[in-house]
Nucleic acid binder design. Structure first.
Lengths: 138, 138
DNA sequence: TCAATAAATGCACTTCCATTGCATTGCCCT
DNA sequence: AGGGCAATGCAATGGAAGTGCATTTATTGA
């Protein structure tokens, strides 16, 4: 496991204190995270800074944005297997309607779809909604 | 083709003038429509009324809501083949990043996904993004 | 028919989140 | 040390969803 600061630098991101904290917070979190989540995690941080940090991370392919239909954007680290560098990563997401958590199912890929003549797909977003393993296990 | 007012009544919706207009507007429109689209179509109508009209339609399974990731909710009529009455209809949507239009691909169904142990899917949302037939044909 | 009741509409307002402008601070390099 | 650019913080804006309440319109029942 390489140090966070080296990792960020390798992605072309200057590893400031704030960015390292955000990165480590994302690393620890197993689920997709909202801006507010992060804001609450470090009360001292400004919302704008966090917002721009996430935008920077996104641009440099460190995180990807997830629109799970909850109305609030979420972010999750791109993992090893994540193909964000090449093209949009086509793994899918699971949104639990019970606990509200959104989970990256990096193992599951979005199947190929045969589109009608003339349509060219460049990106895909698949969100399944239901009950997650934790909530169904109760 | 049964008249609009009879159709709405058959769905348990009182066919007011406003609702008939909105319904007919949706019928004419081949693509998913935003609240603002409709608002602009009838300048005299109030946003709230339209909002609630759409909510009513949604509840009565006349339209379905589409979150195509553009940040703005869109609505489209449920078609004959639409299974909204039983459960969520699992057809997919195509969002053109060129013209911004969102199209229901009612022919294409969302493939079944094998989820990890403990996950129970109740709903699915698949949005493909790219260039639509009209835009790619130019 | 007319009053009583319920449903639909319109206006104003609130909330929530994403996003931007601008001034300030901090970091890096010479 | 100082110049310059990147990062940060504060304030404000904007867009869309949603709510409360008063008013209008439609339905029902005497």
């Amino acid at each position: 496991m390489i140090p966070s600061d080296e990792f960020l630098e390798s992605k072309g991101i200057r590893p400031t204190a704030m960015r390292l904290l955000v990165f480590q917070h994302l690393t620890k979190s197993k689920v997709a995270t909202t801006l507010s989540d992060i804001e609450n995690a470090f009360a001292k941080a400004d919302r704008t800074t966090l917002f721009r940090t996430l935008k920077t991370f996104e641009q440099k392919r460190v995180v990807h944005q997830i629109d799970d239909g909850s109305g609030i954007m979420k972010y999750a680290l791109c993992e090893e297997g994540c193909n964000c560098e090449l093209e949009r990563d086509l793994h899918l997401h699971f949104h639990c309607t019970n606990c509200g958590k959104t989970i990256c199912l990096t193992e599951q890929k979005i199947p190929h779809i045969n589109l009608p003549e003339g349509f060219v797909a460049e990106d895909a977003n698949l969100v399944l909604k239901g009950i997650c393993d934790k909530c169904s296990g109760q």
